[in-house]
């Protein structure tokens, strides 16, 4: 009501009482947030890399995700945004079955990576995670050398038989992650000795060393300073040429900068998924609008 009072001051030079009234009505009108029952926008694409339909996630009896359906296209960067606890991270973790580690977590629905059913009981998660890599919120290099960090994935999957091959994988991965020039002289120094941004790029290098098809990123920049963040964002754009990327972020500007399409989650539901430009200039759903413009809380 405070704002209404401010508006009561008549605008100079206009005596149009009706107009003032209109302004007041606008300003004080409270927005009812209608419950999202169907996703608006363009959640589906032709020939998707990942095809996810009616995904539901339960923690014991609590349903965390309600019937989310969306596609992730080839070489597309999709960002998932939404307020805390909206289920975006939970959803992301379904995509390489990281939720398997939580006993009480149950996933329903149809999730496909191309023709492969992710939750096929015959599918080995180890194989899946080699195809769908993940980068985490906090940079988490192993307390080993930079070289060993990157070489770990190829080693456990037996991707390189000779030392020479492994060296090559390490170098190309670090190059792709834009870290090679900075660390090439100290490959055997501990990875934990790098700066936060470098550590995160090391984690990205480690992830792409196993040549995944999809890279999932769970708030990859939330622990980094703006310059390191900018470097990672730059990297994401470059990586999208060869990988499909799904990124969860709390920074709307980041979603706006890096992604092709943006999905807005609210209370475990996918409210809207649209081209990023549309979401940030003219979102279709009121809830998206309210979140994008910071009208929550």
């Amino acid at each position: 009501m405070e704002t209404a009072q401010q508006l009561d001051k008549p605008a100079l030079g206009t005596n149009d009482a009706a107009r003032d009234k209109a302004i007041n009505e606008q300003a004080t009108m409270t927005q009812d947030t209608p419950y999202p029952d169907q996703t608006v926008g363009k959640p589906f694409v032709d020939d998707p890399k990942m095809r996810l339909r009616d995904v539901e996630v339960f923690y014991d009896d609590n349903q965390a995700i309600h019937g989310v359906s969306l596609d992730i296209g080839k070489n597309e960067v999709v960002s998932l945004i939404g307020p805390s606890g909206c289920g975006k991270s939970t959803f992301l973790r379904c995509l390489n079955r990281m939720n398997d580690t939580i006993d009480i977590c149950k996933v329903k629905g149809s999730l496909h990576l191309e023709s492969q059913d992710l939750y096929d009981p015959k599918l080995d998660v180890v194989e899946l995670r080699a195809r769908v890599g993940m980068v985490f919120q906090k940079p988490n290099p192993f307390p080993k050398s930079i070289y060993d960090n990157v070489a770990y994935g190829p080693r456990i999957h037996g991707l390189a038989n000779k030392k020479y091959d492994l060296d090559e994988i390490v170098e190309t991965s670090l190059r792709k992650a834009g870290l090679w020039e900075e660390v090439k002289d100290r490959l055997h120094a501990p990875g934990t000795g790098l700066s936060g941004g470098q550590q995160q790029r090391l984690c990205i290098a480690r992830t792409i060393a196993v040549s995944p098809e999809v890279v999932l990123m769970d708030e990859p920049c939330s622990a980094l300073d703006p310059i390191a963040t900018a470097k990672i964002e730059e990297l994401i754009s470059e990586l999208s040429e060869s990988y499909t990327i799904a990124i969860v972020t709390h920074s709307m500007q980041q979603a706006a900068r890096v992604s092709h399409r943006t999905a807005y989650f609210h209370l475990g539901r996918l409210v809207e998924m649209n081209d990023t430009e549309t979401v940030f200039t003219k979102p279709e759903h009121d809830l998206t609008e309210a979140y994008i413009t910071g009208r929550f809380g």
């Binding site: 704002t3 605008a11 206009t14 302004i23 004080t28 910071g294």
Partner: peptide, 27 residues
């Protein structure tokens, strides 16, 4: 709709812009 921003300062800034625009329009 205005007046629901989590930041009051942001609200005030937007309100002020609108009011000034209306003032200018009137003039």
């Amino acid at each position: 709709h205005f007046g629901e921003h989590s930041s009051t300062q942001f609200n005030e800034a937007l309100e002020s812009i609108r009011n000034h625009l209306m003032e200018m329009g009137g003039l």
